[in-house]
Amino acid sequence: MAFTAPKETYSGKVYSVTIGTGDSAVTFGGENVLPFHAFEGITPSRPVIAVEIQDVAPADWPETVRKPYEAVSNDPVAWAKFCQDELKARAVALRLVGTHPDRENRSPEDAVRTVRDVLAAIRVPLIILGSNHAEKDSAVLIAVAEAAKDRNCIIGKAQEANYKTIAAAAMANNHKLIAMSELDINLSKQLNILISQMGFEKERIITDPMCSALGYGLEYTYSVMERIRLAALTQNDTTMQQPLLGDVGMYVWKVKETSAAEADLPHWGALEERGIAWEAETASALLIAGAELLIMRHPRAIRAVETLIDELV
Protein backbone atom coordinates (compact mmCIF):
# COMPACT_ATOMS: atom_id res chain seq x y z
CA MET A 1 0.00 0.00 0.00
CA ALA A 2 1.53 3.28 -1.05
CA PHE A 3 1.66 6.15 1.40
CA THR A 4 -0.46 9.18 0.47
CA ALA A 5 1.42 12.20 1.77
CA PRO A 6 -1.07 14.50 3.56
CA LYS A 7 0.36 17.75 2.23
CA GLU A 8 -1.16 21.07 3.20
CA THR A 9 -1.38 24.34 1.40
CA TYR A 10 -1.98 27.61 3.15
CA SER A 11 -3.78 30.78 2.19
CA GLY A 12 -1.22 33.11 3.79
CA LYS A 13 2.41 33.95 3.30
CA VAL A 14 5.15 35.56 5.37
CA TYR A 15 6.35 38.94 4.07
CA SER A 16 9.72 38.91 2.42
CA VAL A 17 11.97 41.56 3.99
CA THR A 18 15.23 42.91 2.57
CA ILE A 19 17.72 44.85 4.67
CA GLY A 20 20.94 46.60 3.72
CA THR A 21 21.86 47.92 0.30
CA GLY A 22 23.61 46.83 -2.89
CA ASP A 23 25.38 43.48 -3.09
CA SER A 24 25.41 43.05 0.66
CA ALA A 25 21.65 43.26 1.12
CA VAL A 26 20.02 40.18 2.60
CA THR A 27 16.45 38.92 2.37
CA PHE A 28 14.52 36.71 4.74
CA GLY A 29 10.92 35.49 5.03
CA GLY A 30 8.75 35.00 1.95
CA GLU A 31 7.66 31.43 2.62
CA ASN A 32 4.05 30.24 2.38
CA VAL A 33 4.53 27.17 4.56
CA LEU A 34 5.59 26.26 8.10
CA PRO A 35 9.33 26.48 8.79
CA PHE A 36 11.42 24.28 6.49
CA HIS A 37 8.36 22.69 4.87
CA ALA A 38 9.77 23.11 1.36
CA PHE A 39 8.00 19.88 0.42
CA GLU A 40 4.64 21.62 0.25
CA GLY A 41 5.29 25.22 -0.73
CA ILE A 42 7.87 27.89 -1.41
CA THR A 43 10.73 28.84 0.90
CA PRO A 44 12.67 31.43 -1.09
CA SER A 45 15.09 32.64 1.60
CA ARG A 46 17.10 31.04 4.34
CA PRO A 47 16.95 32.51 7.85
CA VAL A 48 19.52 35.19 8.64
CA ILE A 49 21.79 35.28 11.68
CA ALA A 50 23.03 38.71 12.73
CA VAL A 51 26.11 38.83 14.95
CA GLU A 52 25.65 40.96 18.04
CA ILE A 53 28.09 43.69 19.05
CA GLN A 54 27.66 46.61 21.42
CA ASP A 55 28.77 50.20 21.89
CA VAL A 56 30.68 49.51 25.11
CA ALA A 57 33.11 46.71 25.96
CA PRO A 58 31.13 43.60 26.96
CA ALA A 59 32.47 43.38 30.51
CA ASP A 60 29.19 41.81 31.62
CA TRP A 61 29.31 38.92 29.10
CA PRO A 62 30.52 35.57 30.44
CA GLU A 63 34.09 34.74 29.62
CA THR A 64 33.23 32.06 27.05
CA VAL A 65 31.61 34.58 24.73
CA ARG A 66 33.87 37.53 25.62
CA LYS A 67 37.03 35.67 24.61
CA PRO A 68 36.48 35.38 20.84
CA TYR A 69 36.09 39.18 20.64
CA GLU A 70 38.79 40.17 23.12
CA ALA A 71 41.02 41.84 20.56
CA VAL A 72 38.30 44.00 19.04
CA SER A 73 35.46 44.49 21.50
CA ASN A 74 36.80 47.73 22.98
CA ASP A 75 35.97 49.42 19.72
CA PRO A 76 32.60 48.90 18.02
CA VAL A 77 34.08 49.72 14.62
CA ALA A 78 36.83 47.11 14.87
CA TRP A 79 34.31 44.69 16.30
CA ALA A 80 31.85 45.22 13.46
CA LYS A 81 34.60 44.80 10.85
CA PHE A 82 35.77 41.63 12.56
CA CYS A 83 32.24 40.19 12.34
CA GLN A 84 31.96 41.09 8.68
CA ASP A 85 35.46 40.17 7.49
CA GLU A 86 36.55 37.33 9.77
CA LEU A 87 33.26 35.75 10.79
CA LYS A 88 31.62 36.44 7.40
CA ALA A 89 28.53 37.70 9.19
CA ARG A 90 25.59 38.31 6.83
CA ALA A 91 24.40 41.08 9.15
CA VAL A 92 25.56 42.85 12.32
CA ALA A 93 23.37 43.85 15.27
CA LEU A 94 24.66 46.82 17.25
CA ARG A 95 23.13 47.10 20.71
CA LEU A 96 23.52 50.53 22.28
CA VAL A 97 23.52 49.26 25.88
CA GLY A 98 25.85 52.06 26.89
CA THR A 99 23.00 54.52 26.52
CA HIS A 100 21.04 52.98 29.40
CA PRO A 101 20.65 55.43 32.29
CA ASP A 102 21.77 52.76 34.79
CA ARG A 103 24.90 52.04 32.74
CA GLU A 104 27.21 54.51 31.02
CA ASN A 105 24.21 56.72 30.25
CA ARG A 106 25.68 57.77 26.91
CA SER A 107 23.92 60.53 25.07
CA PRO A 108 22.04 60.22 21.78
CA GLU A 109 24.93 62.19 20.20
CA ASP A 110 27.41 59.55 21.39
CA ALA A 111 25.17 56.88 19.93
CA VAL A 112 24.99 58.72 16.62
CA ARG A 113 28.78 58.86 16.43
CA THR A 114 29.08 55.13 17.06
CA VAL A 115 26.44 54.30 14.48
CA ARG A 116 28.03 56.57 11.84
CA ASP A 117 31.47 55.06 12.39
CA VAL A 118 30.19 51.51 12.28
CA LEU A 119 28.15 52.15 9.14
CA ALA A 120 31.17 53.73 7.45
CA ALA A 121 33.23 50.63 8.21
CA ILE A 122 30.94 47.82 7.04
CA ARG A 123 28.94 46.90 3.96
CA VAL A 124 26.67 44.27 5.49
CA PRO A 125 23.26 45.32 6.86
CA LEU A 126 23.10 46.78 10.34
CA ILE A 127 20.46 46.21 12.99
CA ILE A 128 20.45 49.06 15.51
CA LEU A 129 19.05 48.26 18.95
CA GLY A 130 18.47 50.48 21.95
CA SER A 131 19.20 49.59 25.55
CA ASN A 132 15.62 48.51 26.28
CA HIS A 133 14.87 51.57 28.37
CA ALA A 134 11.57 52.73 26.90
CA GLU A 135 12.11 56.47 27.40
CA LYS A 136 15.79 56.69 26.57
CA ASP A 137 15.33 54.46 23.54
CA SER A 138 12.92 56.98 22.06
CA ALA A 139 15.54 59.72 22.12
CA VAL A 140 18.45 57.51 21.08
CA LEU A 141 16.68 55.67 18.27
CA ILE A 142 15.26 58.85 16.71
CA ALA A 143 18.79 60.24 16.49
CA VAL A 144 20.47 57.10 15.13
CA ALA A 145 17.67 56.38 12.65
CA GLU A 146 18.41 59.70 11.06
CA ALA A 147 22.16 59.14 11.12
CA ALA A 148 21.63 55.84 9.31
CA LYS A 149 19.22 57.30 6.76
CA ASP A 150 18.82 55.25 3.56
CA ARG A 151 21.09 52.43 4.70
CA ASN A 152 17.96 50.27 5.03
CA CYS A 153 18.70 49.18 8.59
CA ILE A 154 16.44 47.60 11.16
CA ILE A 155 15.67 49.86 14.10
CA GLY A 156 14.46 48.41 17.37
CA LYS A 157 12.79 47.82 19.53
CA ALA A 158 9.45 49.59 19.40
CA GLN A 159 7.29 48.59 22.34
CA GLU A 160 3.83 49.56 23.48
CA ALA A 161 5.27 52.40 25.56
CA ASN A 162 7.38 54.05 22.85
CA TYR A 163 6.35 52.75 19.44
CA LYS A 164 5.07 56.09 18.14
CA THR A 165 8.34 57.98 18.18
CA ILE A 166 10.46 55.03 17.11
CA ALA A 167 8.17 53.99 14.27
CA ALA A 168 8.02 57.59 13.04
CA ALA A 169 11.83 57.76 13.02
CA ALA A 170 12.16 54.47 11.16
CA MET A 171 9.55 55.57 8.66
CA ALA A 172 11.12 58.98 7.98
CA ASN A 173 14.51 57.42 7.29
CA ASN A 174 13.50 54.33 5.31
CA HIS A 175 14.32 51.66 7.83
CA LYS A 176 12.66 48.47 8.94
CA LEU A 177 11.30 48.24 12.47
CA ILE A 178 11.26 45.62 15.23
CA ALA A 179 7.99 45.55 17.18
CA MET A 180 8.38 43.80 20.51
CA SER A 181 5.67 42.62 22.85
CA GLU A 182 5.69 40.28 25.80
CA LEU A 183 5.04 36.66 24.94
CA ASP A 184 1.43 37.05 24.02
CA ILE A 185 0.08 36.57 20.52
CA ASN A 186 -2.70 39.12 21.01
CA LEU A 187 -0.36 41.82 22.29
CA SER A 188 1.91 41.16 19.35
CA LYS A 189 -0.94 41.49 16.87
CA GLN A 190 -2.19 44.61 18.58
CA LEU A 191 1.20 46.34 18.42
CA ASN A 192 1.53 45.55 14.72
CA ILE A 193 -1.91 47.04 14.16
CA LEU A 194 -1.10 50.20 16.13
CA ILE A 195 2.12 50.68 14.21
CA SER A 196 0.48 50.19 10.82
CA GLN A 197 -2.30 52.61 11.78
CA MET A 198 0.41 55.28 11.94
CA GLY A 199 1.00 54.71 8.26
CA PHE A 200 4.01 52.47 8.74
CA GLU A 201 3.86 49.72 6.12
CA LYS A 202 3.22 46.37 7.72
CA GLU A 203 5.57 44.76 5.20
CA ARG A 204 8.43 46.62 6.92
CA ILE A 205 7.82 45.31 10.44
CA ILE A 206 9.69 42.47 12.11
CA THR A 207 7.88 40.88 15.03
CA ASP A 208 9.77 40.12 18.22
CA PRO A 209 7.38 38.14 20.41
CA MET A 210 10.12 38.26 23.10
CA CYS A 211 12.81 35.68 23.37
CA SER A 212 13.74 33.44 26.29
CA ALA A 213 16.59 31.05 26.87
CA LEU A 214 16.56 27.28 26.81
CA GLY A 215 15.30 26.17 30.23
CA TYR A 216 14.11 29.66 31.14
CA GLY A 217 10.81 30.10 29.36
CA LEU A 218 11.85 28.88 25.90
CA GLU A 219 8.63 26.88 25.65
CA TYR A 220 6.64 30.10 25.83
CA THR A 221 8.55 31.82 23.04
CA TYR A 222 8.43 28.61 21.01
CA SER A 223 4.66 28.28 21.23
CA VAL A 224 3.92 31.96 20.68
CA MET A 225 6.04 31.82 17.51
CA GLU A 226 4.29 28.66 16.30
CA ARG A 227 0.89 30.21 16.91
CA ILE A 228 1.83 33.43 15.11
CA ARG A 229 3.07 31.42 12.12
CA LEU A 230 -0.10 29.33 11.98
CA ALA A 231 -2.26 32.47 12.18
CA ALA A 232 -0.25 34.00 9.32
CA LEU A 233 -0.56 30.93 7.12
CA THR A 234 -3.93 29.36 7.89
CA GLN A 235 -5.95 32.52 8.57
CA ASN A 236 -4.08 34.74 6.13
CA ASP A 237 -3.85 37.30 8.93
CA THR A 238 -1.78 40.19 7.55
CA THR A 239 -0.97 41.46 11.02
CA MET A 240 0.82 38.22 11.81
CA GLN A 241 2.74 37.76 8.55
CA GLN A 242 5.84 39.70 9.57
CA PRO A 243 9.08 37.73 9.87
CA LEU A 244 9.89 36.71 13.44
CA LEU A 245 12.98 37.72 15.39
CA GLY A 246 14.73 35.57 17.99
CA ASP A 247 16.99 37.84 20.05
CA VAL A 248 18.84 34.82 21.35
CA GLY A 249 22.25 35.93 22.61
CA MET A 250 21.24 38.39 25.27
CA TYR A 251 18.87 35.95 26.94
CA VAL A 252 21.15 32.94 26.76
CA TRP A 253 24.35 34.49 28.01
CA LYS A 254 22.90 35.49 31.33
CA VAL A 255 21.62 32.14 32.55
CA LYS A 256 23.63 30.06 34.95
CA GLU A 257 24.25 27.24 32.46
CA THR A 258 26.39 29.56 30.33
CA SER A 259 28.60 30.79 33.15
CA ALA A 260 28.83 28.32 36.05
CA ALA A 261 32.23 26.61 36.35
CA GLU A 262 32.51 22.90 35.71
CA ALA A 263 34.43 22.59 38.99
CA ASP A 264 31.28 23.63 40.88
CA LEU A 265 28.88 21.58 38.77
CA PRO A 266 30.78 18.57 37.41
CA HIS A 267 27.58 16.89 36.17
CA TRP A 268 26.93 19.83 33.84
CA GLY A 269 30.08 19.16 31.81
CA ALA A 270 32.57 21.46 30.10
CA LEU A 271 31.66 25.14 30.50
CA GLU A 272 32.72 26.45 27.10
CA GLU A 273 30.93 23.72 25.15
CA ARG A 274 27.89 24.04 27.40
CA GLY A 275 27.53 27.79 26.83
CA ILE A 276 27.90 27.41 23.08
CA ALA A 277 25.44 24.53 22.99
CA TRP A 278 22.97 26.55 25.08
CA GLU A 279 22.97 29.38 22.57
CA ALA A 280 22.86 27.08 19.54
CA GLU A 281 20.04 24.87 20.90
CA THR A 282 17.95 27.90 21.81
CA ALA A 283 18.45 29.20 18.28
CA SER A 284 17.61 25.93 16.56
CA ALA A 285 14.42 25.48 18.57
CA LEU A 286 13.28 28.97 17.57
CA LEU A 287 14.11 28.37 13.91
CA ILE A 288 11.87 25.33 13.98
CA ALA A 289 9.15 27.39 15.68
CA GLY A 290 9.30 30.08 12.98
CA ALA A 291 12.11 32.61 13.52
CA GLU A 292 13.55 34.01 10.27
CA LEU A 293 16.02 36.40 11.90
CA LEU A 294 18.28 35.56 14.83
CA ILE A 295 20.65 37.73 16.83
CA MET A 296 23.45 35.64 18.31
CA ARG A 297 26.82 36.07 19.98
CA HIS A 298 29.21 33.15 19.96
CA PRO A 299 31.00 32.50 16.64
CA ARG A 300 30.96 28.73 17.10
CA ALA A 301 27.28 28.66 18.02
CA ILE A 302 26.56 30.76 14.93
CA ARG A 303 28.60 28.50 12.68
CA ALA A 304 26.88 25.39 14.02
CA VAL A 305 23.43 26.89 13.47
CA GLU A 306 24.41 27.93 9.91
CA THR A 307 25.44 24.33 9.27
CA LEU A 308 22.12 23.13 10.62
CA ILE A 309 20.34 25.59 8.31
CA ASP A 310 22.39 24.17 5.38
CA GLU A 311 20.85 20.79 6.26
CA LEU A 312 17.35 22.20 6.66
CA VAL A 313 16.91 24.13 3.41
Binding site: L214, E273, A277
Partner: peptide
Protein backbone atom coordinates in the same frame (compact mmCIF):
# COMPACT_ATOMS: atom_id res chain seq x y z
CA UNK B 1 27.37 11.24 25.35
CA UNK B 2 28.88 14.48 26.58
CA UNK B 3 27.53 16.03 29.73
CA UNK B 4 27.18 19.50 28.23
CA UNK B 5 25.26 18.13 25.26
CA UNK B 6 23.03 15.95 27.42
CA UNK B 7 22.16 18.86 29.71
CA UNK B 8 21.08 21.03 26.77
CA UNK B 9 19.05 18.24 25.15
CA UNK B 10 17.41 17.16 28.41
CA UNK B 11 16.38 20.75 28.99
CA UNK B 12 14.97 21.20 25.51
CA UNK B 13 13.02 17.95 25.81
CA UNK B 14 11.64 19.15 29.14
CA UNK B 15 10.63 22.50 27.60
CA UNK B 16 8.89 20.94 24.60
CA UNK B 17 7.06 18.27 26.60
CA UNK B 18 5.72 20.40 29.47
CA UNK B 19 2.04 21.04 29.70
CA UNK B 20 1.33 24.35 27.93
Amino acid sequence: VEKWKSLALFTLRQNIFTDP
